[in-house]
Design a protein around this nucleic acid. Structure first.
Ligand code: MN
Ligand code: MN
Ligand code: ZN
Ligand code: ZN
Lengths: 142, 142
DNA sequence: ATCTACATTATAATAATTCTAAACTGTTGA
DNA sequence: TCAACAGTTTAGAATTATTATAATGTAGAT
């Protein structure tokens, strides 16, 4: 996604009408340095609090899924209880902080290339992703 | 878990009362060769159909979570929309068949040891797990 | 300006999961 | 042996995340 505000172009390119709700969502999601990991709830809060944009919950869901279909967002499974999304849509690895429930992207260099020795007959590999769960080091817990 | 039916002992060992519901669940979960990956729904179906045991849904949830707390089951995150559980409670890797939604355990030998080069300050690594998504090889789709 | 397909919205519906409170049962120890 | 208690089960209600519905609005083309 672009650095500044011509999300209108980008949306049109993939065949999504650049409505003001979608443009606002793009601004929240993509006007930032690093990739953004979020839940629907995070996003709704950001839209209503930071931006003063009231967008109906249904639209947020619709738009997130539209972006996902168009390759602007990727769903990440770390918690079976709610959906996390990621503005980094490539196959990549994560650290998951079990204290803060924060996801952190791994760089290429952080983890050696994974070598899969087994193959399932008649199946091709779509993705290989590593999840590294981390937690507080200090033994402050009883 | 044991091969035959002294689940009563095992349950007592971890401080769970060996009620008939729990013993039946143990039989369904652990009287099998390979590790078992399942959703709550799978389990309820197995209990009512194969075994002729009607167990309330609340009890199935309660018991699964009790087993999880006691280290008899582990929750697996592959799908943000429902919970999968695994009778293999060690940290291990999986293949996930995106056609059939089936989980398959990887053996030690299937994937080389993962080398993590990055570390998050103040955090220790709890687990490192790989998810390999696979799907049908034939290009039968449009 | 008009039209039309696509979007947005409030609201209802559904699905997974958890809570509640009453009835039940495994275990303990008199 | 058996009453008593704590832990367990249960049906059903409540909660939460998500999706569907159907009426209204709007972007983009003519
Ligand atoms: Mn989804
Ligand atoms: Mn859970
Ligand atoms: Zn990421
Ligand atoms: Zn497994």
């Amino acid at each position: 996604m672009p650095k500044k505000c011509n999300f209108i172009e980008k949306l049109r390119e993939v065949g999504l009408r650049p409505t003001k709700q979608r443009v606002k969502m793009c601004e929240v999601l993509y006007n930032r340095e690093k990739t953004f990991h979020f839940t629907i709830n995070d996003l709704v809060k950001l839209l209503s609090e930071k931006m003063n944009q009231k967008i109906s919950l249904a639209t947020v869901y619709n738009t997130v899924h539209a972006f996902e279909r168009k390759g602007y967002l990727k769903e990440i499974s770390i918690d079976s209880h709610k959906s996390y999304f990621d503005t980094n849509t490539s196959a990549h690895h994560h650290f998951f902080d079990e204290d803060t429930h924060e996801l952190i992207d791994c760089d290429e260099s952080d983890i050696d290339k994974i070598n899969i020795r087994k193959n399932i007959t008649g199946k091709k590999i779509n993705s290989v992703e590593v999840l590294v769960r981390v937690a507080s080091d200090n033994q402050t817990q009883k």
